[in-house]
Amino acid sequence: MKVLVPVKRVVDYNVKVRVKADNSGVELANVKMSMNPFDEIAVEEAVRLKEAGTATEVVVVSIGPKQAQETIRTGLAMGGDRGILVEYDAETEPLAVAKLLKAIAAEENPDLVVLGKQAIDDDCSQTGQMLAQLLGWSQGTFASKVTPGDGTVDVTREIDGGLETIQLKMPAVVTADLRLNEPRYASLPNIMKAKKKEIAMKTPADYGVDMTPRLSTERVEEPPERQAGVMVESVSDLVAALKEKGAL
């Protein structure tokens, strides 16, 4: 079984993001970048499938600038076998990424595509769903447990009411939720091994995908500052205050 894991290079989760002075976006100069945490969970799951003997090959894919190679290397140091980078410098949108991944899936023929449920930069949560639709494959989103069977995969999903387990026919697309696993650290010996693994360099043109954005960003602003609250003495005071604010 072959597993394809798309990963995105995003602002590191420890960084406090700042809006650019001209309100055109967030400041990326001199900001630490790393793999989207949900994608790390996806890599971990794929590597565990390989360690369990279920998966035979784990291919890590990224679409982004040249530096996204480092993100792929992290995936390879965690246990991925080889990488594909589709080099593209401008901002990516889920639809274009899904189209590229569809083209890559057509070449690679994976049994499973595992990716993060969303990226922590734009929080879209669309790529996995769009990819499944474009491929015409089954999808199991927000997975907290993945159990492959014979030509099928059981996916436990986190839904509003609790957990739901569905069985998908493979090939399938699975998006990873936070509780699927705890990703490993790229160990030092594996960082050295990853250096020798192959990363194929591609461009969107190689796949005939038009990356032109369908959306335009008007302005990016800080969230409004939170107003100070007031302490109330009793429930009736609270009700009165809520009525006064028009909340009740």
């Binding site: 480092e70 290397r73 992290t74 790229a186 160990s187 030092l188 960082i191 990853a194 250096k195």
Partner: peptide
């Protein structure tokens, strides 16, 4: 000789 800034940075990141 097998090292480079990429491995140094990856180790420091870890």
């Amino acid at each position: 000789a097998d090292h480079g800034r990429d491995t140094f940075d990856a180790v420091i990141d870890t």
